[in-house]
């Protein structure tokens, strides 16, 4: 059986900006500010709802950083779950078309 892919989408209720290698995200729901480090930023930038997480890790994290695919993928899953808990990222098993809100 094929493993289920994970698709991630940035929440519409945020404003974000990149500062150096980091990304600063502000939730408009509760005025919380989030700061992502360089690897977190690479994952965040790939969160377009159409690219599977495995591809984001392969094309962005593994190409740019000195890490194995397995380690990067395990960390990315943990990271994505945390962002989803904070409500700034949506996680889906299906691709999300632009403008579609989960």
């Amino acid at each position: 059986m094929a493993a289920t892919e994970t698709y991630i989408t940035q929440s519409p209720d945020i404003a974000c900006s990149t500062l150096g290698d980091d990304t600063i995200i502000m939730s408009t729901l509760d005025s919380t500010i989030f700061v992502l480090n360089s690897v977190g930023t690479a994952i965040w930038q790939g969160a377009d709802g159409a690219t599977p997480l495995s591809r984001i890790v392969q094309d962005k994290v593994c190409l740019e950083f000195d890490v194995t695919g397995d380690e990067a993928m395990a960390d990315a899953k943990e990271f994505v779950d945390e962002l989803a808990r904070h409500g700034i990222l949506s996680v889906s098993s299906q691709p999300v078309s632009p403008g579609e809100v989960l």
Partner: peptide
């Protein structure tokens, strides 16, 4: 050359607290 890897992390804080 690839950059050194760090585990992806998120820090957060409330604006009004800051």
């Amino acid at each position: 050359a690839k950059k050194p890897y760090v585990k992806p992390e998120v820090r957060h804080e409330r604006v009004f607290e800051t």
